[in-house]
Design a protein around this nucleic acid. Structure first.
Lengths: 244, 244
DNA sequence: CCGTTTATCGTCACTTTGACGAGTTCTGGT
DNA sequence: ACCAGAACTCGTCAAAGTGACGATAAACGG
């Protein structure tokens, strides 16, 4: 704010501040988002992102973490601010400015009980992103389609140059499991051998636990933990979607 | 928002929504930000980022553009959302959620007249980022030091893989001028020959205008315009700050 | 025992990078 | 007029990284 303006909020119509959360995980080899079916107008019976009002004494991130826990019981997952959406008219009732957060959790997520009247469920994001797929309600309430798309774009982009993919993996994971995260989120096939060379060759990116696992069939694989290096330089290049 | 909650904003203490702007440019071979000297409490006489309240019928981006024009007269520059800052207590008067924007303008910026009581001026960002430099007021009002740092970080990062650097250049520019943007923003020296090869070799990144210029001394250089390719793949790698 | 699956190691050609040499064309000083 | 300096642009070369793919290893289920 510049210095001379005085504060008189009553001069302005009130603005509500909410958080909305794009919570992504991987279910059955698909990237999926948690969606809530709305029980009230507007957009009754449509799907929407989970979220809620920011309470007077909590930070924005705390509000997002709280809503997430209320909705899913999950805690401590990766959570980052995505962007803020505040167009007038995005909510027909009043001016609402919504701070969107992106959250990622590993594979087998809690069964999301519809503890209250609203029901939450995981939906593959593809149906909301590909306008060519006429499945399910292809539109979300409010501007949540846009927010969901921005969240997926952010996640896809950050896989290239950060260790974000490990947020989709359990604490200990194999190179193959990590590669499958990339393949599912990007929707491409990666060469297992080159991927292995890249991630094991980047110093500090993966820490071997010394253990092996045979889960997943095939030859047992080393288990790794996330290492201290959280930036990938040079990045893992995402192959451009095969143009035919 | 999840579906069952009802809207009753009067239940909550009001939250003010503002925009703050990190406006960067290059002055005298330094990266500089526009700062306002505050004329009122709190933080009277401190420096702060320009900004102001979001009006009822404008988008967040429009509010940022309006404030920017009121403050500098500048229009049409690069403007992107940076992040939202809403910790309780960041403003001692009331709960304020501020959506920060990052704006970049080319070299010779308008003289910023202190048209109203507040005075605006360009300050090199180094003094606010390097805590080791005890020049000028090394702290900004509110959490604006943090916002400024985030803005500079964002600009630095995006130079690597986007054509953002051209936002610091006039419409037509030489490869040398573009390189100097990188050198100043990153605070490193780049090899002129390798840089030239990289940016002219990336198809669609620069469009030759066919003209030459001799401004800047030395052999005349080709003038380029920004090309259609706005993503640099592979990116221009930022040399790590020379470790001694 | 044998095919299948997955992990991991290697090889090879190609591209990109970083370091640097060298020629070109302007300006400003003497 | 000449020269030093600055800046642009083209080249060369070794090192590193990448993509494509062959080959072996170690588990599994029949």
């Amino acid at each position: 704010m510049s210095g001379t303006e005085t504060y008189d909020p009553s001069k302005y119509p009130p603005i509500a501040v909410t958080v909305d959360i794009v919570l992504l995980t991987i279910i059955q080899d698909s990237l999926a988002a948690l969606l809530i079916r709305r029980g009230a107008e507007p957009f009754k019976d449509s799907y929407a992102l989970p979220g809620g009002f920011v309470q007077p004494d909590e930070t924005l991130a705390a509000a997002a973490a709280r809503e997430l826990e209320e909705e899913t019981g999950a805690r401590g997952m990766h959570l980052e601010q995505l962007g803020t959406y505040g167009d007038p008219g995005r909510d027909p009732r009043m001016r609402v400015v919504s701070v969107a957060y992106l959250a990622l959790i590993p594979n087998p997520p809690e069964v999301v009980g519809g503890s209250d009247a609203t029901s939450a469920e995981w939906s593959p994001v593809a149906s909301f992103l590909d306008s060519t797929l006429p499945e399910t309600p292809s539109l979300l309430a409010f501007d949540h389609s846009r927010i969901l798309r921005d969240g997926v774009d952010r996640a896809r982009g950050k896989l290239e140059y950060t260790g974000l993919a490990t947020a989709f993996c359990p604490d200990e994971f194999t190179v193959g499991e990590l590669r499958r995260v990339y393949e599912i989120v990007w929707g491409v096939d990666l060469d297992a051998r080159n991927f292995h060379r890249k991630v094991t060759g980047t110093l500090g990116f993966l820490e071997p636990t010394g253990e092996m696992t045979t889960r997943g069939g095939g030859r047992p694989a080393q288990l790794f933990r996330q290492g201290p290096t959280q930036s990938l330089n040079p990045p893992i290049l995402r192959p451009s979607p095969t143009v035919i």
